[in-house]
């Protein structure tokens, strides 16, 4: 049996990382050059390649810095191609390149993994999809957060100005339950068809469950989703966007009733929205351009305003266990780019 590592040396190294201000609050794995070299060996991309720039703060992230942060987050070296693809996917989002990380809304990336890599690396693809408990899901999401903190220098209370933040920030990495989904994988909606391993990402403002084990009628179930999606508190602008992470049971019920993913999206586009009276009660009935404001005018009280402008504004993912009809509405910050990123085959 190998000799157990020295806990005192490990603790000292962990405390050193805290003292430097690198940690998100939890212990970091101290990264050494030999460890980071193993990460860099998994990709054909050069260590000094710039993979993200935050112009307003004058900071870049290179492949090398991503590797250091991924190692510190607790990733295994073989996760690194997924981290790179996830970071690319996150940086496709307009808000991530703009002021999103500095925002008072404190958005959290939702990372979605598809394809064979889910099983090759041991992602959780079943129950407890929103975590925690599984190393790839937990550490890949955390790596993105550490990159934003350390490589971009966006730290809480300084350049990061989240008012309350979002539960699950830097911990949302879902591997889609493709095996129990009745529909094509999410990556196909992002242009990566054919069962390839790919990552998609969107920025989110919160997740809200829809528990409907009450009816076998797909129309009633969809109304329950429409009600959650149409909540006035989340409306800021004329339009909104939300992903639905269906559990296998809801997805299979809808598919069994003949609904394709596109049919579900079309139904929700048609039925999500509020009346002028509802919006006026919340002070959000007026529109100046795309911004909502409190308008005293009650003449549109009877008018129903739709809030999802297109199917692209209601991405659909399938995740979780098939043991209950419990799904999640994930509120999107801005809108999803609509593009998934393929994962490079490990070197």
């Amino acid at each position: 049996m190998a000799e157990a590592p020295d806990p005192d040396a490990a603790q000292e190294a962990i405390e050193y990382c805290y003292e430097q201000g690198w940690s998100d609050g939890l212990p970091l794995v101290p990264a050494s050059q030999p460890l980071v070299d193993r990460f860099l060996a998994t990709t054909s991309r050069a260590p000094d390649e710039i993979i993200g720039t935050l112009e307003q703060v004058g900071r870049d992230c290179t492949v090398y810095l991503a590797a250091v942060n991924a190692a510190m987050a607790g990733c295994l070296p073989e996760y690194f191609p997924v981290v790179l693809a996830a970071f690319d996917a996150v940086m496709r989002e307009r808000a991530a390149r703009g002021g999103g990380w500095q925002s008072t809304s404190g958005p959290a990336p939702l990372i979605v993994v598809n394809g064979p890599v889910r099983h090759e690396l041991g992602f959780n693809t079943a129950g407890g999809a929103f975590g925690p408990g599984f190393r790839p899901n937990a550490t890949i999401a955390r790596a993105i957060g550490l990159i934003v903190r350390n490589a971009f220098g966006i730290r809480p209370h300084v350049l990061e100005q989240a008012t309350q933040g979002v539960p699950g920030r830097w911990s949302l990495c879902i591997a889609e339950n493709e095996e129990e989904s009745p529909w094509p994988p999410f990556a196909a909606d992002g242009g990566q068809a054919g069962g390839v391993s790919a990552v998609s990402a969107m920025l989110t403002r919160t997740s809200e469950f829809v528990d409907n084990r009450h009816t076998p009628d797909p129309g009633q179930v969809l109304w329950d989703f429409a009600d959650t999606i149409s909540r006035t508190g989340s409306l800021i602008f004329r339009d909104t966007s939300a992903a639905v992470v269906f559990c296998p049971e809801h997805a299979q019920m809808l598919a069994g009733a003949g609904y394709s993913k596109t049919d579900v999206q079309a139904w929700l586009v048609e039925h999500c929205g509020r009346t002028g009276a509802d919006l006026r009660r919340a002070g959000k009935n007026g529109l100046r351009g795309i911004a909502r404001f409190a308008d005293g005018d009650a003449s549109a009280d009877e008018t129903f305003s739709k809030i999802l402008p297109s199917p692209r504004h209601i991405p659909i993912i399938v995740a979780g266990a098939r043991n209950a009809a419990i799904s999640m509405v994930v509120r999107i910050f801005g809108e999803w780019s609509g593009a998934s990123t393929p994962i490079e085959k490990g070197g």
């Binding site: 690198w22 050494s32 050059q33 090398y64 810095l65 250091v68 942060n69 510190m72 550490l146 220098g153």
Partner: peptide, 9 residues
């Protein structure tokens, strides 16, 4: 080994 700096600064 030294502990690597994740900030690049």
């Amino acid at each position: 080994n030294v502990i690597l700096d994740p900030t690049g600064q």
